[in-house]
């Protein structure tokens, strides 16, 4: 019973839902601010993202007539639940490497699909043709980036010879960070466009594409349900780079120096994502698939072969 209570605390307060929400929305602001500065705008004040979510929660929610209501309303929750669990697993392992369970890396990979699946279900039940197109694009994007992402993560597994997140982090605290190896540099480079696509950021915002299919899967969402989707995305913005830090930069050490280092690493990855986002136009879906399958995947395979021969 005690265990379950503790697990619930971890999931809901720290490092799960509430913690990730607060920091996610903060980094969402960082993202918007930096993007604005790059485009010579002033950008929003620090509380803007919190205010957005709060405002959305107060708005009237409009459900499209004739849509599959239960699916339409439950879809956002699915994504939120998935990303909460991911965040809990990754942070818990960083805090205490002993709590890692066999195959948690695989569990994280699977749970990371849930937010995308939520978008697909939502778009598909919304009855809006743009929503349907968005859903089909989202699924194709999953297929596109999942392959190189998997190979990049297998490169890490090959290097560490373990699929426990805890052991991957411990390995790096003893042997030095993984990104020091050529194979893992490649894997890390491969992961960057993949998380860009997971976040549906430009140039991979094809499923949403505001100027083309008016937000795609999100077109019919409003009020609280839209707020939950926004929140999920903010949480992903916080947790995905941190996932990469755990895999390639040895995770976090809980002292002032360690936290500062992670913060710098995190901001560097964030900056890269934002730079890609602000300097590229959106790709078409077929271009994105070709980019991931025929360009990023071979690169990832090179990285994996390097890891196999011990580089």
């Amino acid at each position: 019973m005690d265990d379950i209570l503790r697990a619930i605390f971890y999931t809901i307060i720290f490092p799960g839902l509430i913690f990730t929400c607060v920091f996610g929305l903060f980094f969402c602001w960082v993202d918007r601010k930096i993007a604005a500065r790059i485009q010579s705008r002033i950008g929003p004040p620090w509380y803007q993202c919190y205010a957005d979510v709060l405002k959305l929660m107060g708005k009237t929610m409009i459900i499209p007539r004739g849509s599959r209501k239960a699916g339409f309303l439950l879809a956002p929750l699915l994504g939120l639940a998935g990303i909460t669990l991911v965040s809990t697993i990754i942070w818990r392992v960083n805090i205490n490497q002993e709590v890692s369970f066999v195959g948690d890396l695989i569990v994280v990979l699977y749970l990371l699909i849930l937010p995308s699946l939520a978008l697909i279900m939502g778009g598909s039940s919304s009855r809006n043709p743009f929503g349907v197109i968005g859903a089909s694009r989202e699924m194709k994007m999953i297929l596109a980036y999942e392959l190189p992402f998997l190979i990049a993560i297998i490169t890490v597994i090959l290097k560490v010879k373990s699929i426990l997140l805890g052991e991957i982090i411990t390995f790096q605290s003893i042997q030095g960070v993984l990104v020091g190896n050529p194979s893992c540099v490649i894997a890390f480079i491969v992961c960057l466009p993949c998380i860009q696509a997971k976040l549906t950021y430009i140039p991979f915002d094809i499923p949403e594409a505001e100027t083309e299919i008016i937000g795609g899967t999100l077109a019919e969402y409003s009020g609280v349900s839209l707020a939950i989707f926004k929140l999920t995305n903010a949480m992903m913005l916080f947790i995905l780079p941190f996932f990469l830090i755990s895999l390639f930069f040895g995770g976090i050490n809980f002292n002032i120096k360690g936290i500062l280092i992670v913060l710098v690493e995190y901001l560097a990855i964030l900056l890269l994502i934002i730079l890609i986002k602000t300097t590229h136009p959106r790709l078409r879906i077929d271009q994105a698939i070709k980019f991931f399958w025929w360009l990023v995947t071979p690169l990832a395979v090179v990285g994996m072969i390097l890891a196999l021969i011990g580089e």
Binding site: I12, T60, M61, I63, P64, L77, L80, S126, V224
Partner: peptide, 19 residues
């Protein structure tokens, strides 16, 4: 938790609209 989010929000003002 997600359902609580819904409850916290303005769920009463739920209405149907056109696509």
């Amino acid at each position: 938790c997600g359902i609580i989010f819904y409850r916290l929000g303005n769920i009463k003002a739920l209405k149907e609209g056109d696509i």
